[in-house]
């Protein structure tokens, strides 16, 4: 088991109290698995991604553990975590467009970063150039400043840079969200290729765009208001979702062949609960068509079929 997360809780400190953005999540990611995390804005997916590599200073680790390749990660201890970053856990951030220092040539920045990890640039350079070629970039980009590259190029440079030391786990946060569809496709394909080449062991890909996950991910984890709703192979999530939230989420996607002048594309009524003082029980209760008395008690996240876990009382 590459990544094993147990009852992880991460809260945001605010003046009004803790916002429980991640409130007890438990899941595993297998070796070689690309797991997509889907959910609407504010459901805790980015918080989960950050919790695995670097908590920002407003975030508080309130409980639970993260283990990578059997070793527990000290996620609450920034200094101790530094040793694990980049070599074991790496990140492609939401903001790849501005992720590189604008006043330093890309090659020099990579050299500085590698030196900080005790790796010699000259030794890695042939591999770096090979991987740049793999994503369709000339080695010449290393002599360029970030502003000289297009958005898609920057995204690919960041992809190569983040995975240069072959991390066990790569977290991709909204990797394709800022790109046009042709660049999206190139980046999505590169992600899968990098896994297939063994540059990255497993991946967690966070996005609000389920269609991208369908291209990239082996399994999809659906989150709702800081809780897990459902995890299953990507095909199962699309074709046979079990959780009512997943069903409505998939139902909200447009389908090829449907004519929307005849029928309205349906959304999900209502809005997610506040995470400052979240309600007890199932958090989707208020918007759920299947809600009944039992939903006042939080449903367990349990396996209903091979590789398919759901947190819903209505699913047997």
């Amino acid at each position: 088991m590459a990544l094993s997360v147990t009852d992880l809780r991460v809260y945001y400190r605010t003046l009004k109290g803790d916002v429980k953005a991640l409130d007890g999540v438990t899941f595993d990611v297998a070796d070689g698995e690309i797991m997509g995390i889907a959910g609407e804005s504010g459901c805790g997916k980015t918080t989960l991604g950050k919790a695995l590599i670097r908590l920002d200073n407003r975030m508080r680790h309130a409980g639970g553990t993260v283990a990578l390749d059997g070793e527990k990660l000290p996620i609450a201890d920034d200094a101790a975590m530094r040793r694990h970053r980049y070599r074991e856990v790496s990140l492609i951030p939401q903001y790849a467009m501005s992720a590189m220092n604008p006043t330093r040539k890309i090659g020099k920045m990579i050299r500085d970063l590698l030196a900080a990890h005790g790796v010699r640039y000259a030794e890695v350079l042939p591999e770096l150039e090979r991987r740049l070629a793999l994503v369709g970039l000339d080695a010449e980009v290393l002599k360029r400043y970030p502003i000289e590259l297009s958005g898609g190029m920057k995204q690919r440079v960041v992809l190569v840079l983040s995975t240069l030391l072959n991390p066990s786990l790569l977290i991709g946060d909204e990797v394709t969200s800022a790109l046009d569809v042709s660049s999206q496709k190139a980046v999505a394909r590169a992600l899968v290729e990098f896994r297939d080449h063994g540059f990255v062991r497993s991946m967690v890909v966070i996005t609000h765009d389920i269609s991208v996950l369908f291209q990239v991910a082996d399994t999809i984890l659906v989150m709702y208001a800081g809780h897990l709703a459902e995890k299953a192979p990507a095909r199962t999530i699309i074709d046979e979702p079990l959780h009512p939230y997943t069903k409505m989420l998939i139902g909200a996607l447009p389908q090829v062949g449907d004519r929307y002048d005849e029928q309205q594309l349906s959304g999900i009524e209502g809005r997610p609960p506040s995470l400052l003082n979240p309600p007890t029980g199932c958090r989707f209760r208020d918007r759920c068509p299947l809600a009944h008395d039992r939903c006042a008690e939080a449903p367990p996240f349990r396996e209903v079929a091979e590789g398919h876990q759901v947190a819903c009382w209505a699913v047997s």
Partner: peptide
């Protein structure tokens, strides 16, 4: 963003500060 990215990749504070 570039400071956050460098920190997430385990760059020491010294390097981030220098940039």
């Amino acid at each position: 963003d570039y400071s956050n990215y460098l920190s997430a990749l385990g760059a020491p504070r010294r390097l981030v500060r220098r940039y």
